[in-house]
Amino acid sequence: MVAMGSRNMVEVQNLVKRFGSLTAVDHVSFQIHEGEIFGILGPNGAGKTTIINMLFNLLMPTSGKIRVSGIDISEEPFRVKRLLGLMTQETIVEADLTARENLRLFCKLYEIPSQEIDKRVQQGLEDAGLVEFADQRAGTFSGGMQRRLGLVRALIQEPKILVLDEPTSGLDIQNRNTMHNRIRELNRKGATIILTTQYLEEADILCDRIAIIDHGKMVAIGTPLQIKETTGSEKVLELVVGAQDTQRAISMLKSKFGISSVLQGDMIVALLDRKHEREFTRISKMLDSSGITVVSRSMHPPTLNDVFVKLTGARMRDRTGAMRGGQASVRWK
C-alpha cells in the first residue's frame, strides 16, 4: 500500500464487449495507478473475467481502448503481455509435469535467458514453499499447493502488474489468509495488483480502490470507504421475525417510522439515517408490544454488501444467463 504513484499503469476507456445480443461489458472506463491494489467486484457473470481477458488480448473489445503502462494493447500485444502476469480463476497447472517443469515451461514461454532460468525456478519454488516437492507431479498437489504454484508461475517473468482472477475462490480460511498476506507482500515490493473477487470482505480488507461491476456496467468506483459512504446512511438494521409476521413488520416500519425496508430471504433489511438510528430501541419495543415474534435484531455500520444491495438492488448472486461473457466464452466462443 506504499508508493502510490500518480502514474496510470492501466487505462481503460469506454470498453465495450458484445457477444451477439448480449452486452457483457458496457462502456467501462477506469484507471489503475502504479502500486495500488485495485479490486474489480461483482457477482458471477457481471463481466469481470471478460474485462481481464480483454486486458490480456485474449478477446478483442467491440470498442474502446486499453493502455497498459502507456502502451496500446491492440498495437503491441506482446509487449503488454510481458508486463502482465495472470493467475486464473481455476487452478491451472500442468498436472503431468513436476512443479519444477511447470516453472521451466513458463520461463521458456516468456523467453527468459536460459542461464537465468534455473535461478528463477529455484526462487519460485522457495517462494511457493514447494522446494521439497519440486520433482513431484503437480497433479498430486493439494488445492492450496497448486494455487501457490500458480501464483509463482504468474510471477516468473517479474511482471509489473499482477492480475489475480478470483485468487481465493474455493480456498479454505487458512489458505485464504496466506494468499492475502502474499498479495500484500507483493504489493509492498512494488507490484501493481488487479484483483477480481466476489467476496466483499476480501475487497474491503485488501484493496486500495474498488470498482463495482454489475450487468457489465460500472456502478461505483472509489476507495472502500468512499463507496460505503455512497449509501448515505449511518446504520443498517437487520430484523428476523416469525414468518407469519413478516409483512406486518414491514408495513409497521413504514407507517409508524417512515422506514422503507426490503425482505432478503428471512431477513428484513433497512438502511437507517441518523434520525432513525436513535430509534432502534423504540422500534424494538414497538415490535414486541404488537405481538410480533422477533427472532433476532441487529444494527451495524454498512458493509460493502449493503452498498451492493443499494447499488444493484440485490445481494451477491449468480447470474447464469450472463456466464457467456465471462469464463465460459474465454475458453471457447
Binding site: 503481455k81 510481458r82 502482465l84 495472470l86 491451472i92 513458463f106 475458453r331
Partner: peptide, 15 residues
C-alpha cells in the same frame, strides 16, 4: 487443454 484452461494460460504469455 482448451476446456481445462491450459491453452488460456499459454496465450497470456507472448507466444
Amino acid at each position: 487443454d482448451r476446456l481445462g484452461g491450459n491453452i488460456k494460460s499459454f496465450l497470456v504469455t507472448p507466444i
